[in-house]
Simulated scan of single mutants.
Amino acid sequence: MAFYPTAGQQFPIVNPPVPYIGNIQGQMVPNKMIFIQGVVPHGADRFHINLQCGTSTSPRADIAMHFNPRFQAQKVVRNSLVRQGWGKEENHGSYFPFAHGQHFQVIILCEPHQFKVAVNGQHFVEYKHRIEQLNRINTLAVDGKVQLYSIRYSGGEPQVAGGPIFNPPVPFTGGIQGAMTPGRLVFVSGIVKPGADRFHINLQCGPEGRGPRPNIALHFNPRFKARTIVVNALSNQKWGGEEKHAQFFPFIENGFFEVIILCQNDAFRVAVNGQHLLEFKHRIPFHTVNTLMVAGAVTVTQIRFQ
């Protein structure tokens, strides 16, 4: 059975080239959200994110929002291009949220009268619409000295369990509010460390402690030397039979990834970078799963529940 996102969700565009230019998935409407993850290389002076009305370069397409971090000035300039003319720059802001060599996530939320921009989970700025016909805004363009990991769109449905967790330490252990239920999604985004041997993502029945080890309903374990993904379950302190998946290994050193785990009545289904990878039949009742754990040779950039 194939893996598909829920209504209002689209799979990410992973490791796109820069300059990047692409259609905005679905129409730009109130509550539309754009998630952009990347890293600023050392020595970068500026980059920009544009929300545009098309791709034309001659004459140049209107730009509804030009979001332009400038490192020397330590300012983020916002502006719009309408009928070949730039408007008045906005560059106010109490802090500069970008740093060389650091990963970032920019979230752009479209509201009826403005865009709201958050960086690394913190509200950064609001930008009043200068192009009010939102349906004209159909193109995302990113250029400059920046490396992109992923671009993702959402219809803006409310997140379960209080929203995403940004840049948590690894190993990470966190509760799953309401436990696992059919249709529940877990998203783990990150970057594989250089020289990685393995990492794992566990869906557990409680955190690790001094007592007996909790049951693990899903142990998802990429192993780089063997280029194999091992999945298993731990019940009453005993591992079951390993299931190995070696036909396709979607992880690379220094590469960005997004693992999506979907709970269904009969199995967990796992996708990586938008492609269905495997399914794992339930060995432990899914409703007892209340904890997510991530450990090993990865940097986690975001965890979220849907």
Rank of each mutant, 00 (worst) to 15 (best):
F256L: 04
A161V: 06
N290K: 13
N273K: 06
G163R: 03
A118Y: 03
N232P: 08
T299Y: 11
L185K: 12
F249V: 07
I303M: 15
G240Y: 14
R283N: 11
F96S: 08
A233N: 03
I108N: 03
F3A: 15
Y20T: 04
V40A: 06
I36S: 00
I284Y: 13
K193C: 11
N91F: 14
E111G: 08
H287K: 06
A246W: 12
I252Y: 10
H245M: 04
F47A: 01
Q84D: 10
K32W: 00
A61S: 07
L262P: 02
Q25G: 14
A73Q: 15
E111K: 10
I191P: 02
D62N: 08
Q9R: 07
Q264Y: 02
I13Q: 04
R227C: 09
V119A: 03
I216C: 12
I137A: 01
V29S: 09
F104D: 00
H219N: 12
W86E: 10
F224D: 02
S58L: 10
A99G: 06
G43Y: 13
I229D: 04
Q25H: 12
F115I: 00
V231L: 08
P168E: 01
T181I: 14
D143R: 10
I303R: 02
L277N: 02
V14H: 11
L185Y: 08
I137Y: 07
F172K: 07
I284L: 15
K238V: 13
E157M: 09
G26D: 10
A271K: 01
L81K: 04
H219T: 07
H42A: 10
G206H: 07
P207Y: 11
D266I: 11
S189G: 09
R227A: 08
G163C: 07
E253Q: 09
I24D: 08
F268D: 02
I252C: 09
Q52G: 05
G274T: 08
G38P: 05
K32Y: 03
E111N: 06
K128A: 12
N236W: 09
Q275M: 15
C53Y: 14
N232R: 09
L234N: 07
H92T: 11
H219Q: 09
Q122P: 02
Q177A: 13
G22P: 03
Q306P: 12
F257A: 02
S189V: 02
A141N: 12
G43L: 14
G175Q: 15
R130W: 03
Q204D: 05
T57D: 14
